[in-house]
Structures are given as C-alpha cells and as structure tokens.
C-alpha cells in the first residue's frame, strides 16, 4: 500500500490528535498540583510548592504508600516464582490440556476485575474466615501471574531449547542447567515481568476493594476515599502528579531490561 502524500499528512494529523487527547489530561494533573488554589480553577491563579510540602508530611498518604509497596512486593514475589515455573512448562513441554492451562493463567485479566473481586470476596468471607492483609496479597498475585508468564514465555520461545538439551547431554543436572543456562538468558524478561506486575498491583483498585482486610488502605484506596473530601484535594493532586511522573519508570526499565516491549503490551 503506497500511501499518498495527503494520506500521510492526514495520518500524521490524526496521530498528533490522538496523542494530544492522551496527554492533555495528564499534563492537567501535573499543573494542577502546583496551583495555589485549593479547589480546581483554570488557569491556576499562581503556582506554589506549598501542597507538595503538605503532601510530603501527610501521615495517611505515607501509610498508604507503605501498604501498597508491601502488597505489591509480596504479590510480585509469588507471581514470579509461580509464573516462571509455569512458563517453563508451557514453552518447553507439550502436554494434554496445555491450551486449557494457558487459558486458566489468562482468565484473571481477561474476565472483569469485579468478577475476580467478588469471587475472591466470596471465598475469603464465606469459606476462609474473613479478609486480611494476606487475602489482599493473594488476590493481587492471582492476576500478576499472567504478566510474568507472558514475559517469560515470550523470551523462552525466542530462545531455542537446544542449548538446554546440550547442557543436559553434557551431564548437567536439571538445577545446573536452570542456574547456568536458562536463568541467565531469562533474567531480563523476569525482571521486566516483575516490574510490570509490581506496577499493576500498585495501581489496582477493584480487586483490592473486594479483598482488603478491614482498615487496610492501599494508595489507590486512599486516593479514592479522599477524592470527595474538598480539604484533602491539594494533597490528592500532588499524589496524582507523582503517580503520573513515576509511570514513566516501568515502561522505561522494562524496555531496557527485556529488549522488547511486547511484555508490556498485556498489562
């Protein structure tokens, strides 16, 4: 398809239009965090760093960030261990029910979060004695597994299994082969998958609402709760701005580590 010059210009204009649509709201959030007005006014009357100082010392906000980091770290750890093993099984073996297992791994992100959320809520409140910190971690780990599986499987498929076979033929034990051959090649993809899983868990709110124990507040839950409190809105604005800025990190790091952004395609 040879595109004519007008077609190229039209496509360029459309692309600029769509990207503007994507970035204007994010810029608005950034600028808004420096506005001297406590309520939203546009343009901001003047710019100030005052709210950033207020936010930096906000106890509720800090506690929520700590909870979010703890949950995301644990969920990521579980997802990396389970996901790595599963991706080895899915790419290095053919077995009965392979497609079903792939689908099972995928389901927690292919089905709506509210279904996952209320299903887990039913399990925890009706069968396992209530919601705690660990039910929240379990909920997050469940949808993080697929991220790790996707990242690791993509790498394993591109890397031929013959190297591992050679290692086995030369007398290496399964552990030695994993440690000296497979793992070094897989490391980048695993770190990238872990980063994306962490970011996903850190931002999740729907499954979180249904699985967090009483009194637990992750950062998204904290923001949601304070969104409707006018006196908190400057602090919420700052938290929002910080989240916009740090969203660059997972993309940048995952890109550098895995050498491709394919894994990032499926959140």
């Amino acid at each position: 398809m040879i595109l004519s010059t007008p077609a190229r210009w039209l496509l360029r204009a459309a692309a600029i239009g769509v990207l503007t649509f994507v970035y204007v709201p994010l810029l608005l959030v950034l600028v808004n965090s420096f506005s001297s007005s406590a309520t939203f006014t546009w343009p901001p009357p003047s710019l100030t760093l005052q709210w950033w100082q207020v936010a930096a010392t906000n106890e509720g906000l800090r506690a929520a960030v700590v909870t979010s980091v703890e949950v995301a770290l644990l969920a990521t750890l579980i997802a990396v261990v389970i996901g790595t093993l599963a991706s080895m099984a899915l790419t290095r073996y053919t077995f009965f029910g392979q497609e079903a297992v792939s689908l099972l791994v995928l389901l927690p992100i292919a089905l709506p979060g509210i279904v996952t959320g209320i299903a887990l809520n039913t399990l925890f409140t009706q069968a396992l004695g209530g919601l705690t910190f660990f039910t929240l971690v379990a909920g997050h780990a469940t949808f993080c597994i697929v991220i790790v599986v996707n990242n690791a499987s993509a790498r394993l498929r591109r890397m031929s299994g013959t190297v591992e076979e050679a290692s086995t033929d030369l007398g290496a034990t399964p552990w030695t082969t994993w440690w000296l051959v497979t793992f070094p090649a897989l490391r980048g993809a695993l770190v990238a998958g872990a980063l994306l899983a962490f970011a996903l868990s850190f931002d999740e709110i729907i499954v979180t609402t249904f699985t967090a124990g009483p009194g637990l507040q992750t950062l998204p839950l904290w923001i949601f709760q304070n969104l409707f409190r006018p006196n908190q809105s400057p602090v919420v604005n700052v938290a929002a701005a910080v989240l916009v800025v740090i969203s660059v990190l997972p993309v940048y790091l995952a890109n550098r580590l895995s050498g491709d952004s394919a894994g990032a395609a499926t959140k």
């Binding site: 994010l26 546009w42 923001i223 969203s247 993309v251 990032a264």
Partner: peptide
C-alpha cells in the same frame, strides 16, 4: 513508549483528570 506510558499512570488519577476536565461547573 508514548502510547505505553499512560497505561502505567494510575487508573484513578486518569479518571480524576477527566472528572476535573468535564466538571459541569468550573471545569476546564
């Protein structure tokens, strides 16, 4: 990267941005 980055900006923050943008009174 430009397409990917907003995906990792907080969900809630993005909805919040549209809440400000679309506010019937005093919105952008």
């Amino acid at each position: 990267a430009l397409v990917l980055t907003p995906l990792w900006a907080s969900y809630l923050v993005k909805v919040y941005a549209w809440r400000i943008l679309l506010a019937p009174e005093g919105g952008l």
